[in-house]
């Protein structure tokens, strides 16, 4: 006669899983973005230097407007690695913090 049904553990697990929202760890994001951007800029610079030519890195060198002292040269490649790493870390960190904040607000 009892028509009530209590959901089983499996059903509850499914519901909890459906609700779960991932969070980004800002430290990890800063590290990953920093390393990726730093290495990326280093490779991009070195690639142009290895290829050579008349006007090496005409466009990439415009990054000097944002990264003072940067140029398409061996020294610039290492400086670019540092700049890229710092900029990437900032981007990754901000991205994670903004995402987590928005996700928290929406979840609450």
């Amino acid at each position: 006669m009892n028509n009530e049904r209590t959901p089983g553990l499996e059903e509850l697990q499914e519901r909890a899983l459906a609700r779960a929202v991932a969070r980004l760890r800002s430290g990890v994001m800063a590290t990953v973005f920093g390393l990726t951007c730093g290495t990326g800029l280093w490779i991009a610079t070195v690639w142009l230097l290895v290829r050579g030519g008349e006007r090496v890195g005409q466009h990439l060198s415009l990054l000097r407007f944002y990264f003072p002292g940067y140029s398409v040269s061996w020294g610039g490649a290492f400086l670019g690695f540092v700049y890229g790493a710092v900029a990437g870390a900032v981007i990754g960190y901000v991205l994670a913090r903004v995402y987590n904040r928005l996700a928290d607000r929406r979840a609450s």
Binding site: A20, V21, A22, R23, V94, L95, A96, V98, Y99, N100, L102, A103, R106, A107
Partner: peptide, 11 residues
């Protein structure tokens, strides 16, 4: 856990 599309979009 899934990513929140609106939050990631916003970020």
């Amino acid at each position: 856990a899934r990513y929140d599309p609106v939050a990631l979009g916003g970020a």
